[in-house]
Simulated scan of single mutants.
Amino acid sequence: MSVGDAWCDWKDFTRLSRMGRDALTERRFRLAAKYLSDALSLFRGNALTDGTEHLLTEESPGFEEARMTALEGRIEAFLALGRHTDLVPELLKMVTRHPFHERVRAQLMLVLHRCGRQSEAIAVYHEGRQMLAEELGVDPSQVLTDVYQGILTGRPELQPAV
Score class of each variant (00 low, 15 high):
Ala66Ile: 05
Ala77Gln: 07
Ala66Gln: 10
Ala80Arg: 14
Arg67Asn: 09
Arg15Trp: 06
Glu120Gly: 04
Leu158His: 13
Ile151Pro: 05
Phe63Glu: 00
His126Trp: 10
Arg117Ala: 08
Val147Thr: 13
Glu64Trp: 09
Ala6Gln: 11
Ile151Arg: 04
Tyr148Asn: 01
Ala39His: 07
Met1Tyr: 11
Val147Lys: 11
Pro89Met: 07
Lys93Phe: 11
Glu72Ser: 10
Glu76His: 11
Met109Trp: 06
Thr14His: 01
Ile151Gly: 04
Glu64Phe: 06
His126Pro: 01
Ala77Ile: 04
Ser17Lys: 10
Gly45Ser: 07
Cys115Thr: 09
Ser60Tyr: 15
Phe78Pro: 03
Glu135Asn: 15
Asp38Cys: 07
Ser60Val: 14
Asp9Tyr: 11
Val162Arg: 15
Ser119Phe: 04
Ser2Asp: 07
Leu42Gln: 10
Leu91Glu: 00
Ala106Ser: 03
Arg83Ser: 09
Leu91Ala: 00
Val95Asp: 10
Ala80Phe: 11
Glu72Ile: 13
Arg117His: 06
Val162Gln: 14
Gly128Asp: 03
Glu72Trp: 08
His113Gly: 06
Val111His: 01
Asp22Glu: 10
Gln130Arg: 13
Cys8Met: 12
Arg67Met: 13
Thr57Cys: 11
Phe78Gln: 14
Asp86Pro: 00
Arg129Thr: 01
Pro160Lys: 11
Glu90Ile: 06
Arg44Pro: 03
Ala47Trp: 12
Leu112Tyr: 05
Leu144Pro: 02
Ile151Lys: 05
Arg30Glu: 13
Asp146Leu: 09
Gln130Ser: 09
Ala33Ile: 05
Phe78Glu: 15
Leu48Asn: 02
Gln130Trp: 03
Leu91Phe: 01
Ala70Ile: 02
Ala121Gly: 06
Gln142Ser: 12
His98Arg: 05
Leu79Val: 06
Gly154Trp: 13
Glu102Trp: 05
Leu71Tyr: 03
Phe63Asn: 00
